[in-house]
């Protein structure tokens, strides 16, 4: 890990205080992303991938509270920064794109103006030049006939086009860090590949670090330099992509890899992981939230999990890892 980290998240904990109880959505989540690197965060639905991204961006729902940890972006801790400082950083230093791009765009504002809004806010672009620059941005993300498209509304565009617009908005201020939360879910397979190519092209061109959130381990394997696996609000393993696939250490990771369609020779080999995520509102959650589903459970598993630093080359949170 010679390159300086673009983002260093350590011991991030988040809870949602709801009427039906406190949801301990994240507990001591740590990971790092180096400049120019792509880190994939994978995990099944509800494992806390989006909450991690929202907490780092400072856009959690009002019910969500960061109860501990730091997220260092350059010299700034995003988790303790003031609202004013955060709104300077958001969109300028760290940007995000979302799943369901059409819903993520303002339905009654033309896409050109939505890009212009961000340019005016961050890009030091004079108000008068902004529309023209917005058209350039649309061209940069590969939208054909950009000057006509700039006047279009989200409902007049395909999902893939909308995601390109979202990407244009996200990279408008040339951020050093891009978080892509399932950017291709709901798009057809060809468009998925095109959007992913666009993101990697943009990041390799500018040295932008990328966090790519997905529940698709196979897609993560194709696109990411490193992979962090999440389960029920914990990062349970984090390693370079090849290392993770060749030598998975956490039993859950091993199960996930076995369940990935690309790896299985045929459908019979496609294992499914027994059990479900524990209810995160429980007050008696075990220290290892996988222990109740785990075939390798031992008595030590009731001890607090072993801590390993966020920058470890191959981090695993398990008392009885494979190998």
């Amino acid at each position: 890990m010679s390159v300086a980290p673009a983002l260093l998240v350590q011991n991030l904990s988040v809870e949602f205080r709801t009427r039906s109880g406190v949801v301990k959505a994240l507990e001591s989540v740590s990971f790092t992303v180096a400049k120019g690197e792509t880190l994939a965060i994978v995990g099944e639905s509800g494992s806390g991938k989006s909450v991690t991204a929202y907490a780092v961006m400072g856009i959690l729902d009002p019910a969500g509270h960061v109860t501990g940890g730091t997220a260092m972006l350059g010299g700034l801790d995003l988790l303790s920064a003031s609202n004013a400082a955060m709104s300077e950083v958001r969109g300028r230093e760290i940007a995000m794109i979302f799943q369901n791009p059409r819903a993520a765009l303002n339905p009654i504002r033309s896409v050109g103006r939505q890009i212009a809004d961000v340019l005016i806010r961050h890009g030091n672009v004079p108000r008068k030049e902004a529309p023209e620059r917005a058209v350039e941005m649309l061209r940069a993300v590969g939208i054909p006939d950009p000057s006509r498209r700039a006047k279009a509304y989200p409902f007049e565009m395909s999902g893939g086009m909308c995601q390109r617009v979202m990407i244009a908005i996200a990279i408008a201020a040339k951020p050093s860090m891009l978080i892509a939360d399932e950017p291709t879910t709901g798009l057809d397979v060809t468009t998925q590949a095109v959007i992913m190519d666009l993101i990697s092209e943009l990041s390799s061109g500018t040295g932008m670090a990328t966090i790519f959130i997905t529940h698709d381990l196979a897609l993560a394997a194709q696109r990411a330099d490193r992979i962090a696996v999440m389960h029920a609000g914990h990062v349970i393993e984090c390693a370079a992509t090849r290392e993770l696939f060749e030598r998975p250490r956490h039993p859950y990771t091993a199960e996930l890899i076995a369940a990935t369609p690309d790896r299985a020779a045929n459908l019979d080999e496609l294992a499914s992981i027994p059990g479900a995520l524990p209810d995160l509102r429980r007050t008696d959650l075990p220290p290892c939230r996988y222990s109740e589903r785990c075939p390798r459970k031992m008595t030590e598993c009731d001890q607090p999990l072993p801590r390993s630093p966020a920058v470890a080359a191959h981090m695993v949170a398990c008392w009885n890892p494979l190998r």
């Binding site: 929202y54 856009i59 709104s87 958001r90 979302f98």
Partner: peptide, 12 residues
């Protein structure tokens, strides 16, 4: 969603 993404893009 679109208000969340407007926040994420740093609009005032």
């Amino acid at each position: 969603d679109f208000v969340r993404s407007a926040r994420a893009s740093g609009l005032s």
